[in-house]
Amino acid sequence: MTTYQYTDVVPQPRRPWDHSRATALRVAVLVVLSGVFGSLLNSFTGLSGFLGWYVGLAFAMPLLAFVGSVKHGWNMATDRLATSLITVAFAAVTIPWVSIVVTVYQKGSKAFHAKYLTDDMRITPSSDLLQYGGVAHAIIGTLLMVLIASLIAVPLGILAAVYIVEIKGRFAKMVRFLTQAMSGVPSIVAGLFIYATVVIFFGGFSAWAGALSLVILMLPTVARTSEEVLKIVPEDLRSASYALGASQARTTFRVVLPTVASGLVTAAVLGIARVVGETAPLILTASYFVATTTSLTEPIASLPIYIFSSLGLGDDNATTRAWGGSLVLLGVVFVLFVFARLFSSRLSRK
């Protein structure tokens, strides 16, 4: 009779797809060599700075990868060439992103002072010293217009999605197509349209007009995201509701929409993030005003226009103010995105 010996050695499953230490070493050598080549190129040619170095690296890395592996055959060599090309190109793509965030933070934080978020520019010219004035008027104006825009665009967007997914009406395809087409309307055209109608008709720039131009730009995002969200509602829920004798209206409002409520919030937040930084339509509809106001029928400030108008002056302090406004605006967009992510992750956990 065979006896089985207990041993401490448990055979581990092999994972041939994992990168071995040799691969890691190869990649490290490759990167270091290309980096050295980049700095060499920097010192011998007119290239300079981080970008010059990166250009050198980006040329050297695919070349070295190819030459270094050509002894393993053509296929291996082209594979490694492609891998390093794709990686280098992707890293190049992220350079502007990082640069934007870093520059906005560095230059924008200079404009900040204790009351930057609570003061407005009522008695402060843009070129005044940086410890005076603030963006309160712009924040309030943006909030007000975005709020009104969402109150109109979010219900309309969700209804469009309900039409496509729930009602599956005769024009469902056309509605989806038109919504997509609408997302391509240039923002300045939306502004021009509201100018041609609301502003000319009521005889002046106003928060109302600004909000309405934002509705046009917000609706497609909301409609599209809500459509995606409604599609994940299981058909069983609808059937169960109908089986209990509920009408379609009741099913939609009491079963389908509540099921994906957090997803609809995501849709709304994404729509808000899309329009909160729109500049061009507001130039034509809401214009700008230096003091804090909540009147809907008068010109009103907004963050993007605050940035835009401060930048146009060419003065150093005004430009720094533009960066400060950019930092606030970028912060708002980032926070909105984190919110959207939080809500959509709650949805997927269900």
Binding site: W97, L270, A273, G277, E278, T279, A280, P304, L330
Partner: peptide, 8 residues
């Protein structure tokens, strides 16, 4: 990144 406002 797609949502960074064009003015920025």
């Amino acid at each position: 990144v797609a949502a960074i406002p064009s003015v920025i």
